[in-house]
Computed example of a mutant assay.
Amino acid sequence: MEKWNQSSSDFILLGLFPQNQTGLLLLLLIIFIFSVALLGNSTMIHLIRVDPRLHTPMYILLSQLSLMDMMYISSTVPKMAFNFLSGQKSITLLGCGVQSFFFLTMAGSEGLLLASMAYDRFVAICHPLHYPIRMSKMKCLKMIIGSWTLGSINSLSHTVYLLHLPYCHSRLVNHFFCDIPAMVPLACMDTWVYDYMVFVSTCLFLLFPFLGIAVSYGRVLFAVFHMRSKEGKKKAFTTCSTHLTVVTFYYAPFVYTYLRLRSLRSPTEDKILAVFYTILTPMLNPIIYSLRNKEVLGAMTRVFGTFSSTKT
């Protein structure tokens, strides 16, 4: 292991793939996924912005999810691709802090936003008559601002701490981005207090929202089961199953990674799990929501159909 050079503040990101032909093919696959994620999420944002029928709390929250996913995947993949293709795996301490800040901001904010989306569906299905009051556009805006603000504050506190840690064991980060579980072991001081902070943050921004989502959808599914209308039951079940798919792909690997004891962690396992919540989920979200949502498909037909007819 290469020892820390006190005159240098750079880290070395070991990356996700080996520097060979197989690694290059896998990187090209990641770049393809990255492109699909950017295209899909930007399309969702555009559709929700231009179609008045989608100017409802559910789709406003969905547009914010797409924005977060675009920033989420952009905080890791471009640097990983540049390092692999250039052969320069270094990242400055400041660059690591910036990457960590944006990654943690998106992680915390998206966790809270998914909980807000679950609450929206709970009110819409279980209390439809109260929906205009309990999920007004103003309340929706407060949820969005709250998600971004709390996620940013939590991220800033962790980033400042990481930047001020004394790193003296090694500057090799066994990951493809500056992730907390991969960086803390490099510090030359006891970090049990910070490990506790990570545990608390994970509970507040991931575990508790996940439990809230589980309870909300449990009540929703109970209400759906007692619906008389087959069409309403089908629509509600489709919406809930879509949200639950997104939640499972996002929360499960994230919570498993951050709540494990350090002695039980494996760098290889952490990197594989990170692919799910940093790369695959931002790509799958717009696909899942668009292909299984008639309103979004209808908006796509209207918007792009109008664009095609205007062009001709």
Score class of each variant (00 low, 15 high):
Asp120Met: 05
Phe101Gln: 13
Leu85Phe: 10
Phe17Arg: 10
Val220Gly: 00
Arg134Ser: 03
Leu172Phe: 07
Tyr217Phe: 14
Leu165Val: 04
Ile30Tyr: 05
Leu259Thr: 14
Ser308His: 07
Gly146Lys: 00
Val184Phe: 15
Leu211Met: 13
Tyr256Phe: 02
Asp120Gly: 00
Asp51Glu: 14
Met80His: 03
Thr239Asp: 08
Val215Cys: 03
Thr257Asn: 09
Ile60His: 09
Met143Gly: 05
Met189Arg: 03
Val246Gly: 07
Asp51Pro: 00
Arg228Trp: 01
His175Ser: 07
Val173Asn: 13
His46Asn: 12
Cys203Thr: 13
Leu27Ser: 02
Phe249Tyr: 11
Ser201Tyr: 02
Val184Trp: 14
Val123Ser: 06
Gln99Glu: 10
Arg228Asn: 07
Asp69Pro: 00
Leu27Trp: 08
Leu207Cys: 10
Val198Gln: 15
Lys230Glu: 14
Leu163His: 09
Pro57Asp: 11
Ile145Gly: 01
His243Cys: 09
Val198Lys: 04
Met71Arg: 00
Met135Tyr: 04
Gly97Met: 12
Ala118Pro: 14
Phe307Ala: 02
Cys168Gln: 01
Tyr161His: 07
Val198His: 06
Ile48His: 15
Pro282Asp: 08
Gln88Thr: 05
Met68Arg: 05
Ala252Cys: 13
Ala187Val: 08
Thr239Leu: 05
Tyr131Ala: 02
Thr242Ser: 03
Leu112Trp: 08
Tyr258Ala: 02
Thr202Met: 13
Val224Cys: 13
Leu14Tyr: 07
Ala187Leu: 11
Met71Val: 11
Thr76Gln: 13
Met106Leu: 09
Ser170Gly: 03
Met71Glu: 02
Leu13Ile: 06
Tyr250Ile: 10
Leu261Pro: 04
Gln88Ala: 04
Phe276Trp: 11
Thr239Gly: 06
Leu14Gln: 15
Met189Asn: 02
Pro52Glu: 06
Met183Arg: 12
Ile33Pro: 03
Leu264His: 03
Lys233Ser: 12
Met138Gly: 11
Asn174Met: 09
Phe32Glu: 15
Leu150Glu: 05
Phe82Leu: 07
